[in-house]
Each structure stands twice: as C-alpha cells, then as structure tokens.
C-alpha cells in the first residue's frame, strides 16, 4: 500500500498541482466534445463549401469553387451575362452587420450605466439585481420574441395604452419594421453586455477614482481616462457577446421584421431548409460569416495583448 506512494511523492515538486500527470486525461472530455461537436462539423462545412451541389439538397463529391463564385459574381438571372460583382449577398451581409452593430451600440449605451449601477450597490442588493437580469433567460428565446411581438403589435397593449392616454390617435406601426428587429435584438442580448461589464466594474478599485478626484479631474475626465480604460476588456467582451449572435440571428428578423428581407442567418437557413436546397452555397456563406467573426475576435485578441503590454 505504501510502496507506490513513495515514488509519487518523490517526483512531486512544490509547485505541482493536485492534477499533475492526469491533467491531460481530465481535459480529454472537453477536447473530445470540442473536437467532435464543434471542429468536426465546421470542418465538414468547409469541405461542403468546395463541393458540387446536388439538386434539392445534398452534395456530389466533385470539387468546385461554384459556391464562392455564386457569392461573388453576378451572371444575370439566366447565368449567361458577363460576370459583374454580385451585390445581392454583399447587401444581405452589410444589412446584417449594420443591424448587429446598431444592436451592440444600443446595448452598450443602456448596458454600461446599468452594470455600473449594479456594481456599485451593496453586496446583497447586487445579487438581487443580477438575479433580476437573468430572470428572462429562464424563458426560451422564441417565446420571448413572440411575446415581444404581442406587446408591440398594432392592437397590442403598448398601442392601446398610448391611445387610451391620448398620446396618439392611431396605432404606431412597430411590427414588421427594422426598428422592431432592433428592439428584439437589443432585448435578447442586453444581459450579455451587462454581465461582463459588471464583472469588470466590480473589480475596479474605486480608490483610483478618488485619487483622480483629488487631483482635480472632473467626473467626465475620471470616467474617460480612468474607469473606461480599466474596464475596457469587459466592454469589449460585452460587445463581442452581443455582436456575434446578433450577426447570425434570424428569429428577431423573421418574427419581428416580417421576414421580408434575408439576413445572413435566414439566407443560410434557406439553403438547407428552404426550397433552394443548395448546401455548398449555404456552407460557403457560413464560412464567410465564420471568417468575419474570427477577424473580429482576432481584433479583440490584439487589443488585449496591447492592453497587457501597456500595463507593463
């Protein structure tokens, strides 16, 4: 019994953790999950995007660049005109990016003060506030989006209230507008902005603000030069957490925007679930979306490295 223990102890250096030696094995479940359920499907989509489409869904194992060609070049409705730049998909991507950027901006404007407020409360009321922020997440996103539609529709409670108080005479059309989509995205992802900023502000040493105050900095300067630079990683994390899912969202555009125009998410969905049945093209559009998201994340990583370099 005591024999095997001795050599183990002998090997141990004072800095070694409890899990040394078996650490790799403990990590293996997460590696398998990431590998099988994340990397493998993405890799499959990458391959699919370079294959020939099978009529009505599926792929034929012949390599081609047709999907990327379709994305980039317009050969007219009948495919026999000289190629020009295809604006259709660029427009769809630009629209999605614009929507996602606006949603991120609104979330930041509302989310930052909210997070700051919560982080500066007493420990007990902080947990109550955080609890309140997470409550809507107990309900499925689809249900929340549909409920939002019920609230803002022409005959819904919001319009009825405004009309009964005499603020307006006829209902304001909110459903099926871009504003409704914005509202939906903003509402869906606001907590993703609040929580990381809250975590950053909570760790912030308020003595720094006092020091700035003592050195005759006004409130605005203190916020700009001291608080924001310190909590910047939280702000960037929040922006990414809102921007990335907004970019691929299709529930809010479909339900609140009336699905009149494609967003990236619905364009991709249509290639797999819709009549088009063009899997390689859907895969190519996903890969282009993925590349864009990776560029944003690399930008973030660079910012982080810079911030750390600056700290030294």
């Amino acid at each position: 019994m005591s024999a095997p223990i001795a050599p183990l102890n002998a090997k141990k250096n004072p800095n070694a953790g409890v899990f040394d030696g078996i650490g790799l094995w403990l990590l293996s479940p997460s590696w398998i999950v990431i590998g099988v359920f994340l990397l493998l499907p993405v890799f499959m989509m990458l391959i699919f995007s370079f294959l020939t489409k099978e009529f009505r869904g599926g792929v034929i194992w012949e390599p081609t660049l047709a999907a990327y060609d379709q994305f980039l070049f317009d050969r007219g409705l009948f495919g026999d005109e000289p190629p020009t730049i295809e604006w259709t998909y660029i427009t769809i991507f630009a629209r999605s990016i614009w929507q996602a950027a606006l949603a991120t901006l609104f979330c930041l404007i509302i989310g930052f003060p909210t997070a700051y407020y919560i982080a500066t409360r007493s420990a007990r009321s902080r947990s109550v506030w955080l609890f309140l922020i997470t409550i809507p997440y107990w309900v499925n996103l689809l249900i929340r989006t549909v409920s939002m539609k019920f609230l803002i529709r022409d005959t819904g409670p919001l319009n009825q209230f405004l009309m009964s108080t005499g603020v307006i005479d006829s209902p304001i059309h909110i459903v099926n507008t871009n504003f409704a989509v914005q509202l939906g995205l903003f509402y869906s992802y606001l907590p993703f902005m609040v929580l990381p900023i809250y975590a950053a502000v909570e760790r912030y040493n308020f003595a720094l603000s006092e020091a700035a105050w003592d050195l005759y900095a006004d409130r605005w300067t203190t916020l700009r030069k001291i608080l924001i630079p310190v909590v910047k990683p939280g702000i960037i994390a929040g922006c990414i957490l809102v921007f990335v899912p907004s970019l691929g969202a299709f529930l809010a555009p479909d339900l609140l925007g009336g699905a009149k125009t494609f967003m990236i998410g619905s364009l991709i969905e249509e290639q797999f679930k819709g009549n088009a049945g063009n899997w390689p093209f859907g895969a190519a559009a996903s890969m282009i979306l993925l590349s864009m998201v990776l560029i944003v994340l690399m930008f973030y990583a660079r910012q982080q490295t810079r911030a750390q370099a600056g700290a030294r």
Partner: peptide, 17 residues
C-alpha cells in the same frame, strides 16, 4: 427540373434581397 428550379430559386432570392 433542375434548370427551371435554379431560375425560380434566383427569383426568390432576388425577392428577399
């Protein structure tokens, strides 16, 4: 058929552009 369907898919995508 495939040729006709490709045309109508294009019309549909243009509609929702």
């Amino acid at each position: 058929n495939q040729e006709a369907q490709a045309l109508y898919d294009a019309v549909w995508t243009r509609l929702k552009k």
